[in-house]
Write a protein that binds this DNA or RNA. Structure first.
Lengths: 368, 368
DNA sequence: CGTTAGCACTCATTCTGCCTGAGTGCTAAA
DNA sequence: TTTAGCACTCAGGCAGAATGAGTGCTAACG
């Protein structure tokens, strides 16, 4: 049951007008705005039908109408203009990324900042290691004469370290032996046998055993990808939006943002890389996000490191612009990584293919 | 020119009433609140004199009065009750810290969270390495066959690592030689001679030279203490305060918080460790903080790592409570580090002395 | 039959004037 | 020096009227 053309055009106009002004839009305003001369009365009729279909809502009887979440969904899926990206914009984005992006650790922060700069919205960025990392080597470095060690893990793309504090003394020499054993176990892929054999030879009460346990936990955590890192930029910009002038609403959202874990969950369920995902209001599940939307996409950083970056704004956000900026962003990143990080990728995927994919625009996620 | 006793008592009452209610306080209210029966008329006279002295302000003619910044300053320096800490509170704080504080990296976050939990305000936490760290060892670990290395620095209390990406290939064997040279230079304290000698033997155009330069920068950065890490917790709680119901004000402050660097500067100019510093409104210099106050203190984590933790709230905050909580906090941390991190300190300072110091309460910073 | 003009009706918002009450400053008496 | 009394100020709250944007319905029109 497709919506007839005129209804679609009217709905589109309403959504866009509301996005722009944040005021309920009335039949007269709309009639003026239209190229094809349709009278306000006709629009009124169409509007009341659109309301019955669930696309419009009335805040009260004598105000105009505002789009429902379903309307936003329809707008994003079918109505809005794609490919709005000004090419100048893309170039600017690429330059910004190039300037800011030096190390992998910073991609996340740069992504948020650049995108925030361009959209003037709150942005969120995450790096997750899909499928986890392969740990290649492990070093234990004595820090204070036997009570504290730094465990350093080398993966194929990164190095992580963690302080280990022990309750018993472990001689550096003993630690060195453990290091060798660990690296042997790593290269042979038999990490799981290390602990039992250790407990047999040293007893579970020894400092080495304690140490090995902690290190193995650390390795396992790294292998599983660890917790993804999350960065949020421009949270304060939320307050620029009319809908968050009411402090209570704003507080809820800001509170939500401070719980990185929950924000991470939001970004988890994205579709294929380089597709734009749009989650509108209630689709985000969480009650404090009920009148906000999230537009996000992911991009490949290296073989198994994925970056995700998104824009959080009120449901009445400019979806077309957000999508365009995100597409421009992924292209810019592809350009930069293509130059600066080529060596990190051994995947055969060519840049051309990736750009094509991203041009497809938003995926049609099931609005539920 | 000391303020006479009665004026002091009246001013104290006004400040406390205002802290509690956030409403301008009038003569009648105050008269009722007083044990010693003074008539509202007398209070009115005293009030108008206090106003002339610059301690009180009138929002408008027929409202009560509110304390000026000078009044807060006087309150903090001379008027308020010290040592309000409930011993139960201290114990609770210690338990919370003990539970949350596992690794040094987390002290910062734990400090903010625990303190935020207890005060229900925004808290800020910073770790800075006073005088920098002594780098003891350096390792260069090959990551992708010669184009990327992980530089790992071991200091006396910590391990840091950083990815180094090179534009030219450097053989792992060559890197190993560089590592040896670096460690030799480190142990002999002649780092500054390494680069010139390298440029002579390899030429400035070699990959090794590029690598050495980057590593030396990293070492220097670490030695100088690097950038302090900063964590802010509960920024959203700002919005709970009456004075930030006005979104514009709130936005300014939140924006300010998102610039870590500026927040760091605030915390830099603190007095001796374990003294409570109070910066009221305009004393903070920055216009966006004009009606906020910052109460903070520092605590020793190890020989040359200092933690700073503070509470940010509207100028009308409960200073006595904030100070008490901060004192309790430093004591709790001393307790925890005393148990769990004793080995990290080789300083002769005893815990007793430190606690005494902290009991002195807020230092009299020059209100300017 | 779809479209349009006209009209009565609704209702949030704004403005107005009025009132109230908290609080002040001043004066004169204790 | 303190207090009581009184006139005065002014923000905030409330009620009612005016405004105007917008709707729904009906009847006429092409």
């Amino acid at each position: 049951m497709e919506l007839p053309e005129r209804k679609r055009r009217i709905l589109k106009a309403i959504v866009e007008n509301y996005i722009e002004t944040a005021e309920p839009v009335g039949s007269k305003t709309l009639a003026d705005r239209f190229e094809a001369p349709i009278s306000s009365a006709t629009i009124r009729n169409e509007m009341s039908e659109l309301e019955e279909l669930g696309y419009l809502e009335k805040p009260h009887v004598s105000a105009g109408r505002i789009p429902s979440y379903a309307a936003y969904r329809l707008y994003v899926n079918e109505l809005m203009d794609r490919h709005r990206i000004a090419t100048g914009e893309l170039e600017a984005m690429r330059l910004m990324m190039q300037a800011k992006m030096r190390e992998i650790d910073n991609i996340m922060v740069s992504a948020s900042k650049v995108l925030g700069e361009m959209t003037r919205h709150t942005t969120v960025s995450m790096i997750s290691h899909t499928g986890g990392k392969t740990v290649r080597r492990c070093e234990l470095i004595d820090v204070d004469g036997g009570y504290s060690y730094a465990a350093v893990l080398v993966t194929e793309s990164d190095v992580k370290n963690k302080m280990i504090r022990l309750s018993r003394l472990v001689e550096p020499a003993t630690a060195a032996v453990l290091t060798t054993a660990l690296n042997l176990a790593i290269s042979e892929g038999r990490l799981e046998y290390l602990l039992p054999s250790l407990s047999q030879s040293m007893g579970e009460d020894s400092g080495v055993y304690e140490m090995a346990m902690t290190v193995l936990d650390f390795i396992r955590e790294t292998q599983q990808g660890g917790k993804p890192e999350i960065y949020i930029d421009g949270a304060a910009r939320l307050l620029d939006n009319r809908e968050y002038q009411d402090t209570q609403r704003a507080r809820e959202l800001l509170e939500y943002f401070s719980d990185r874990g929950r924000v991470g969950e939001l970004l988890e369920g994205g579709e294929a890389p380089n597709l734009i995902n749009v989650r509108i209001g209630p689709e985000l599940q969480d009650p404090s996000m009920r009148d906000a939307s999230l537009v996000f996409t992911s991009y490949q950083i290296d073989q198994n490191t994925r970056g995700i970056v998104g824009i959080i704004a009120p449901a009445r956000m400019d979806y077309a612009d957000a999508c365009a900026k995100l597409i421009a962003f992924t292209q810019a990143v592809a350009g930069v990584t293509g130059q600066g990080m080529k060596r990190l990728k051994d995947t055969g995927e060519s840049d051309e293919r990736r750009n094509q994919e991203s041009d497809r625009g938003p995926g049609r996620s099931p609005g539920r």
